[in-house]
């Protein structure tokens, strides 16, 4: 596999990741979200492995396997269990309608390309063209958290954001040191558990998982 082929493969994977990020923004059903999230994990995992092969960084393989295990299998499974336990069937409600969200998302992608253009000129890494995609994924994840009302979708948004960060680390510097990546992976796992516990508490308190209900916690003045 030549370097230029690997770079092109990586770009394709980046495009797919971006596509799934937009898919997350557009998807209304909660199982659809979950599948899209899992697919994003798959693309991320492959991309990491490709970068690891090109750059000759052995530890990226471990990261890749970790991503596959945690973000494709474990986390979607946990969320799946949660969705069944919490009996969520409804369509996901959004704060802003989906076409507007998509337009904002496109603006964010353009913005991140504009933002990373100096880095692309200076960098010598094969992955340099994907930094802007990574940044865009982070922003789209945050945008998803903002536009969704349901607590579970917010978690998916958060995890998508983390995917973006991970992708940014791989494409900008060939990945963080292995220790850091292990730590982050563990953090994500623990965060998912904590969120799960929180969901149960939120639901028992508000009888709903709509985070808008939490506005009732605000102090009256």
């Amino acid at each position: 596999m030549s370097v230029s082929f690997a770079a092109q493969l990586n770009s394709v994977l980046a495009a797919l990741i971006l596509l799934t990020a937009f898919g997350l923004l557009a998807q209304r059903r909660i199982y659809g979200l979950l599948h899209l999230f899992a697919w994003q994990g798959v693309f991320l995992s492959i991309s990491t492995a490709v970068v690891g092969y090109v750059a000759g960084q052995q530890h990226l393989y471990i990261s890749s396997i970790l991503t596959l295990a945690i973000k494709v299998i474990v986390l979607p499974y946990i969320l799946h269990i949660l969705i069944i336990r919490l009996q969520i069937h409804k369509e996901v409600e959004t704060v802003i309608n989906i076409p507007t969200t998509m337009l904002i998302g496109i603006a964010l992608v353009i913005f991140s390309y504009h933002l990373t253009s100096p880095i692309r000129e200076l960098s010598t890494l094969v992955t340099r063209s994907t930094i802007s995609v990574a940044l865009a994924t982070v922003m789209l994840g945050l945008l998803m958290m903002i536009t969704r009302k349901h607590a579970v979708t917010q978690i998916i948004g958060f995890l998508a954001m983390e995917n973006g960060l991970f992708f940014a680390a791989t494409s900008a510097t060939y990945g963080m040191p292995l220790v850091v990546e292990l730590g982050v992976a563990l953090d994500i796992l623990i965060a998912a558990f904590i969120f799960g516990i929180f969901f149960f508490h939120i639901r028992t308190t508000f009888e709903s998982l709509d985070v808008e209900q939490m506005a009732r916690l605000k102090e009256e003045d």
Partner: peptide, 20 residues
């Protein structure tokens, strides 16, 4: 302080964009 998560997220989002 509105008590809505989305609003808080918008604050951080706007801050990040502005700083960038």
């Amino acid at each position: 302080q509105k008590g809505r998560i989305q609003v808080y997220l918008i604050y951080s989002f706007a801050t990040i964009i502005l700083l960038l």
